[in-house]
């Protein structure tokens, strides 16, 4: 589904990604862990199509297509979804309005009919119930004045409504209380299917208690330094990153 080969990328002349390789197949759940500033969000942004990064080498293929030449909206319509580490507040733009516009843009792209307002609202309500989200969040402006946890939950709502093929979750668990974490994990597990894949960036093992990953990767210094299964995360929890960095330096 997603194939990243030898990816190098710069921000303002600073090389952040330095030869990153990653393969994600349909049905898989991957977790990426790594020290602060190692380039995890940079990777997520580049995959979602954010401007300001210069890819200097390597390639990214998504569903057989060259991802890097696609504009962000096309990536979204092709089923890629990024839950932002820092969701953006957009005053004056209604939350449900954006959801509907996004949903219909994706349907239109697939050649499907737009859903009418009543059916759409029913769908959104059902998804909100799943993640125990307050109905009045819908009528508010996108993320405006939302608490940190509410913003993360709103990202998950969007994900559940848009049903992406590949979901990138950038620290969606950070800032969530214990109950919220369980609820959000439930949402992510709901999305799990043989046709979909999930790539979660996280700092904590606790998320992985609820969502068992198939693979765990350590991203440091702009590269994947080590990959393993769920046990790697447990080991990282115990030992930190130093031993991996030391291993890599040898």
């Amino acid at each position: 589904m997603l194939s990243i080969k030898n990816l190098h990328a710069k921000i303002e002349d600073r090389e952040i990604l330095r030869g990153l390789d990653l393969e994600v197949k349909a049905g898989e759940i991957h977790a990426i862990m790594g020290p602060n500033g190692s380039g995890k969000s940079t990777l997520a942004h580049i995959l979602a199509g954010r401007e300001g990064y210069a890819v200097t080498n390597g390639s990214v293929t998504y569903l057989g297509k060259d991802l890097l030449t696609m504009p962000p909206e096309e990536r979204a319509r092709e089923g890629l979804f990024l839950a932002f580490q820092y969701p953006v507040e957009i005053p004056g733009v209604n939350n449900v309005y954006l959801l509907k516009a996004a949903y219909n843009a994706i349907r239109k792209h697939r050649g499907e009919e737009e859903l009418d307002a009543v059916d759409f609202l029913a769908l959104v309500r059902a998804r909100m119930q799943l993640i125990e989200m307050d109905a009045d969040m819908l009528s508010r402006a996108v993320n405006e004045g939302f608490s940190g946890g509410e913003k993360k939950r709103n990202e998950i709502l969007q994900m559940l409504v848009l049903e992406p093929k590949l979901a990138l979750l950038d620290e969606t668990d950070s800032g969530l209380d214990i109950d919220a974490l369980k609820v959000v994990a439930k949402g992510i597990n709901k999305l799990r299917s043989p046709e979909r894949a999930v790539l979660m960036i996280t700092h904590y093992q606790r998320l992985l208690d609820y969502i068992a990953p198939d693979f765990v990767h350590v991203l440091a210094g702009g590269r994947i330094l080590k990959s393993g299964d769920g046990n790697l995360a447990l080991e990282l929890e115990r030992r930190g990153y130093d031993w991996i960095l030391a291993e890599a330096a040898v």
Partner: peptide
């Protein structure tokens, strides 16, 4: 126009014109 907001909207599937229009409208 807030570049971050524009990108956020586009990352949800909205084309750039629609995204810009939405932000201008909101303003």
């Amino acid at each position: 126009l807030d570049e971050q907001a524009l990108f956020y909207l586009r990352s949800r599937g909205l084309d750039p014109e629609t995204a810009r229009g939405l932000l201008i409208d909101a303003f």
